[in-house]
Design a binder for these strands. Structure first.
Length: 882
DNA sequence: GCTTTGATC
DNA sequence: GTCCAGATCAAAGCA
């Protein structure tokens, strides 16, 4: 009977696995070790061991950097980038994994993994009676393929393999496996950094080999080579060719210290393997082991549940803590239909389609009971939904969504299943898996599957409660959760439910006027272009401007010409049509997004817009606003600003009142960097841009700063907040890169504390892998040590910006909580938050009080090393609150 | 579904 | 030399 030998090229498979999964999320263990290569390697092992059913297995590794090849050619593989640290740290674990799975691994000084494999291929062929399979990511090894040896090379990832038999090699390359070394001798190998014969590439090399059979034979018959130049090159590069062949040839007689008898495939060392999987966080592999020990963690495939009805509703009475999940048919919980719910605790779970049951005793009273803890996913959604049912949710303990967001903004999701799996509870599916996604999404609220999924959701929330809270405490983020995020969710729910009144008439009237202007400009553009086309199509516009009118191309996108504003602005002085296009763009933006867009989302019953704030989306801790976005209502252009006239109080005698933090990010910067000069400027109540202008332009203390200096200084101030680069600043201000650089250098010289902070925060990010805000909000920066300049630079800028933007976000959240508390007995309502601004509607009779109260609460929200400054405005509409 | 554009802080 | 300001959302065109 033939014996089955499996030989694996350890380094090359690890390398492939690492990059195949490099960008996937979640491949780090609890201890922060990267695990993508280990994981991929193990997947590959599972697959090939099952397929090949070998009796003998060997995994070969490279040993060190010098080999007999570097002795021949000192630059061998000299061009290779050094192996990334994230991969290097995984190699010992892969060796451990291999051993625990009952497989021998081997490495040999001065030889590469290839040579070990080549030697064992020969040993097996000499012994006869072996079928050998080689697994590798390196095509060079296909030279080993023969009647008894098959070489499988990774095609995609590490589990999809191409099978190279001698026939397949012949078909693919046109030559025999044994001729591959001759082929490479002629061609050289750029990835291993050794040269072949000048001007010989794939085609010529193949032709020569087909004609002569080998390098030796070519030189023996050099006169019959056709082509004068080719012949010259061959003669010239004779040494290179033979050298390259030697480098390409896999050594089949390496002095390996072990033999075929030493590499039997043994049983896995189960205990050690389980320990390793646990350490690495490999849930799915653990699960597949199916041993008594690992099984216990995964045995709750079925969770018992009961249909809740008016008859058994009293069983809820026994709960002194509960978990609840309400299922909706749409993400917009203000209007979505409530399809059903699950409620329960520990081992008692109920489901129902009838959300009206929630209004009945004892459920309603439990939900409103301040002594009964509630666990859920997305507290704000639950507040709003229950409010729609007339229930006031109290005492929320665990919000899995919020906690998950605070733990890691990178690996967050809106899906219970996704987050559960991320935190180690596998027995649940995602909504996409159960309901389908995109256009194919179908929820059947009467199906068994629906109820089961719902119960799995509540169950997993309950299951992960302690575990995730522990992580939160370990990260020192409990205060952030309890004192900021959880209370701010309640404040936001009140704001969303209240909504803001928007006058449809005002919008429609503006719309008609704008529509008229748009039509006029449209006609003018058609005349100027000499034809009608879709001005809104960048593609068609590009054809008109750059092909037909031959305007200079300034920037290209990957699909064609760029027609973005900065490009058009450069063209506008010389082309009237471009000026008109710019105006057309501006107006059509206002019409589609702000006039038509807003009219669509005004609730016809209360004439209000109820946005939804996303509290767990941004990487910095800011809020975002959707359905519609009320955080980007125009203000800069006068035409756009008029949109704000439609945002009015819900009562005629009231006013819109707005308070905003002045320069909050620069104040945060001054505070956290401890820079004395910057702090001094704020403490003295100076105009910060003027103060910076004086410093970087070297003006006297009382000298008047002209507008241009101030403008440039302002750009520098902003640049610093964003994590500056000279290029970015030059682009933004129109100055030269060199000039930008001197500004930045001068800035850092004048504000040395800022410079020191920026250097330190990047260093800190490298060391810990994350940066933090004043409230311990965290942002992980996986790219901070990336070898890709661009990615790394981005991570560095992020390291500088996030503590500033994020701390400002912390501050306004704290302020919102305090403000809401301060106005709770008044009629004044908080309506909107726009990052550094809070907007209210205020009855006339409370205006005097509010004018004092809001700024007072806001500027004392937190204590920084510089004062916070709040400016307030009010008027009959949001437009007039300026 | 992805790309381009443009609105905000 | 890398080619880049930070954070978002929505509409429209196009494949």
């Amino acid at each position: 009977m033939t014996k089955k030998l499996l030989l694996i090229d350890g380094n090359s498979i690890a390398f492939r696995a690492f990059y195949a999964l490099y960008n996937a999320n979640g491949f780090t263990s609890d201890s922060g070790l990267h695990t993508s290569a280990i994981y991929g390697f193990n997947r590959m092992l599972d697959k090939v061991l099952a397929e090949e059913e070998p009796t003998k297995v060997l995994v070969a590794f490279d040993a060190g950097k010098t080999t007999f090849r570097t002795a021949i050619f000192s630059d061998y593989k000299g061009d290779r980038l050094r192996t990334p640290q994230e991969l290097l740290e995984q190699i010992p674990y892969i060796k451990e994994l291999v051993e625990d799975r009952g497989i021998v691994s081997y490495e040999l000084d001065n030889y590469e993994a290839d040579d070990i494999i080549g030697t064992f291929v020969k040993l097996a062929e000499d012994a006869g009676d072996y079928q050998t399979t080689v697994i590798t990511g390196d095509r060079d090894l296909t030279q080993l393929s023969s009647d008894t040896t098959t070489v499988k090379v990774t095609k995609k990832g590490v589990t999809e393999l191409d099978t190279f038999t001698p026939e397949f090699v012949k078909e693919k390359l046109g030559i025999l496996p044994t001729q591959i070394v001759d082929f490479k001798g002629l061609k050289g190998d750029t990835s291993d950094n050794y040269p072949g014969v000048t001007k010989v590439g794939n085609v010529t090399a193949t032709k020569l080999i087909q004609q002569f059979g080998s390098i030796e034979s070519i030189y023996d018959n050099i006169e019959s080579v056709s082509g004068k130049k080719l012949k010259e090159h061959l003669i010239e590069d004779r040494d290179k060719a033979f050298n390259a062949k030697k480098l390409a040839t896999i050594n089949r007689n390496s002095p390996v210290g072990i033999g075929l008898d030493d590499i039997d495939f043994n049983n896995a060392k189960t205990e050690k393997l389980i320990k390793l999987y646990k350490e690495l966080g490999f849930k799915s592999f653990l699960k597949n082991m199916n041993t008594a020990e690992t099984k216990s963690d995964f045995e709750f495939n079925k969770i018992n549940y009961t249909q809740l009805t008016a008859d058994n509703i009293n069983e809820i009475n026994s709960f002194d803590e509960l978990t609840i999940q309400i299922e909706l048919d749409d993400e917009n919980y203000h209007q979505a239909e409530m399809l059903g719910f699950s409620i329960g605790f520990k081992d008692k779970w109920f489901v129902s389609n009838d959300v009206d049951l929630l209004k009945l005793s004892p459920i309603k009273s439990k939900l409103e009971d301040i002594t009964v803890k509630k666990n859920l996913f997305d507290v704000k959604k639950n507040y709003v939904c229950l409010h729609r049912l007339g229930i006031e949710l109290k005492n929320v303990d665990f919000d899995m969504l919020l906690v998950s967001y605070l733990l890691d903004t990178n690996n967050n999701s809106n899906d219970v299943g996704t987050i559960s799996k991320l935190h180690g509870y596998e027995n649940i599916r995602t909504d996409d898996e159960v309901y389908g996604k995109g256009a194919k999404k179908i929820i059947d609220p009467n199906s068994e599957e629906f109820f089961e999924h719902l119960v799995h959701k509540t169950y997993s929330i309950d299951y992960l409660h302690d575990k995730m809270f522990t992580k939160l405490n370990d990260n020192d983020q409990a205060k952030l959760y309890w004192d900021i995020e959880l209370p701010v969710a309640l404040v936001l729910s009140k704001m969303e439910i209240n909504g803001i009144t928007v006058s449809e008439t005002t919008l429609s009237e503006m719309g008609s006027k704008l529509q008229e202007r748009l039509s006029e400009i449209e006609q003018t553009i058609y005349q100027e272009a000499g034809e009608e086309f879709n001005i809104g199509s960048p593609k068609q516009l590009g054809v008109i401007l750059f092909d037909k009118l031959k305007l200079p191309v300034i920037k290209k996108t990957k699909t064609g010409y760029s027609t973005a504003v900065d490009v058009l602005e450069k063209l506008a002085p010389d082309a009237q049509i471009v000026q008109n296009v710019l105006e057309y763009r501006q107006i059509s933006k206002l019409l589609s997004t702000y006039i038509d867009g807003l009219i669509k989302v005004i609730n016809p019953n209360d004439h209000k817009i109820h946005t939804r704030y996303l509290q767990t989306l941004t990487q910095t801790g800011r809020l975002s606003s959707v359905d519609p976005n009320l955080q980007n209502i125009p203000i800069r252009s006068e035409d756009g600003r008029k949109i704000r006239k439609a945002f009015v109080p819900s009562d005629n005698n009231w006013v819109i009142f707005s308070s905003d933090y002045s320069q909050i990010e620069l104040r945060v910067l001054a505070s956290i960097t401890g820079d004395e000069n910057l702090q001094m400027a704020f403490k003295n109540g100076e105009d910060i841009h003027e103060a910076t202008a004086r410093r970087i332009f070297g003006l006297a203390k009382d000298e008047v700063v002209n507008g241009d200096y101030r403008r440039q200084a302002k750009a520098v101030n902003f640049g610093i907040v964003y994590g500056i680069s000279d290029y970015g600043l030059s682009q933004n201000t129109g100055i030269s890169r060199k000039q930008a650089k001197t500004f930045i250098d001068k800035y850092f010289a004048e504000y040395p504390g800022v410079k020191e902070y920026m250097d330190n925060i990047v260093k800190q990010a490298r060391e810990y892998g994350y940066v933090e805000t004043i409230a311990n909000r965290r942002r992980y920066l996986p790219d901070i040590n990336n070898r890709n300049f661009s990615k790394r630079s981005f991570a560095e800028r992020t390291a500088m910006n996030t503590p500033i933007q994020g701390s400002a976000a912390d501050i306004i959240k704290i302020a919102m909580i305090k403000v809401q508390e301060a106005i709770k007995d008044l009629d004044t309502k908080m309506l909107l938050q726009v990052h550094d601004e809070l907007i209210f509607e205020v009855p006339e009779y409370e205006l005097e009080q509010i004018k004092e109260l809001i700024p007072k609460v806001m500027d004392s929200a937190v204590k920084l090393e510089v004062p916070l400054k709040v400016e307030s405005n009010w008027g009959h509409s949001w437009y007039d609150a300026k």
